[in-house]
Design a protein around this nucleic acid. Structure first.
Length: 275
DNA sequence: TAAATCCTGTCA
DNA sequence: TGACAGGATTTA
């Protein structure tokens, strides 16, 4: 499940392979991704014979920029963006191939569950999803006060608020569980009940788990790999996610699991008291 | 604000 | 064989 650290790892591994390289030809599968297949005309206009100038990231989105426009990419649940030799065997669920001029390589988008997005656009303004994101947790503007303002404004459980990309951009089910554990906050605690004093540790915990995830090149529980097919190692550092019934590494009590918002929510009742 | 929806690989 | 995984959007 690609969250901010996985997307950032993909971005960093894509940069040397894509930036400065020109898209020589484009193939697209007719299958729909999140809603529709990528628009073929728009793909051609925005990317064909265009050099990729920049690979950027905001939250869990990637932006491939060309002089004419570019493409907004989201990996959904099972998306993989890799650069492979053009003659390498095609894997099932390959939805997009962008051949690069010279070097015999191509960018491939593979996504079995098709929850992802590859949306070409023209001009300098990316699609609206790019601008609708909340706080950037790795920016200097991510202060305890800014976090408190965003979280305190909702009656939703703090876990669900933090999963909202319009509140904090980039957290998913794994890293939100890890951050709340590290901050000692129960995931079901209402956002409006989070105190200003808790937002310092919570801010630090979010930054820590994301930076650790990046340092470990992502969490590979199932099928996550970077742009050259390498798995990450952050799964070995998880304290609560996926550890139901196993002892908490801090207090020894069994890690518990509760379904919140139709998602598995892992926490330690000892380290994360309800109030 | 909460539930339903999209999708396929994996596992009991 | 059926439940489950869940990010983001859509619907109630």
């Amino acid at each position: 499940m690609p969250e901010l650290p996985e997307v950032e790892t993909v971005r960093r591994s894509l940069v040397p392979l894509l930036e400065g390289h020109t898209v020589a030809s484009i193939w697209r599968s007719p299958l729909a991704l999140r809603r529709e297949p990528p628009d073929l005309d728009l793909l051609q206009q925005a990317l064909h014979q265009q050099p990729v100038e920049r690979v950027e990231r905001a939250g869990k989105y990637l932006l491939l920029k060309t002089p004419k426009g570019g493409a907004l990419v989201h990996l959904g649940m099972s998306g993989q963006l890799t650069v492979d030799p053009q003659d390498a065997a095609l894997r099932p669920h390959t939805h997009l191939r962008l051949q690069l001029a010279g070097g015999g390589q191509e960018l491939r988008y593979v996504d079995p569950r098709r929850f992802g997005l590859f949306r070409p656009f023209l001009g300098s303004v990316p699609p609206e999803e790019w601008g609708a994101l909340g706080l950037d947790p790795l920016a200097s503007t991510f202060t305890p006060k800014a976090l408190w303002d965003a979280v305190h404004a909702t009656e939703r459980a703090v876990k669900l608020a933090l999963l909202d990309q319009g509140v904090v951009a980039g957290l998913g089910n794994i890293y939100v569980a890890e951050a709340l554990f590290l901050a000692g906050i129960h995931p079901a605690r209402p956002g409006k009940a989070i105190t200003q004093a808790q937002c310092g540790p919570l801010r630090d915990a979010i930054v820590h788990v994301l930076e650790q995830g990046i340092a470990n090149r992502g969490t590979s529980l199932n099928d996550y790999v970077d742009a050259v097919g390498e798995s990450g190692s952050n799964q070995a550092f998880l304290q609560v996610y996926g550890r139901e019934g196993e002892p908490c590494r801090t207090c020894g009590k069994p890690i518990r699991m509760k379904v919140m918002g139709a998602r598995s929510t892992f926490f330690c009742a000892g380290c994360q008291p309800r109030r």
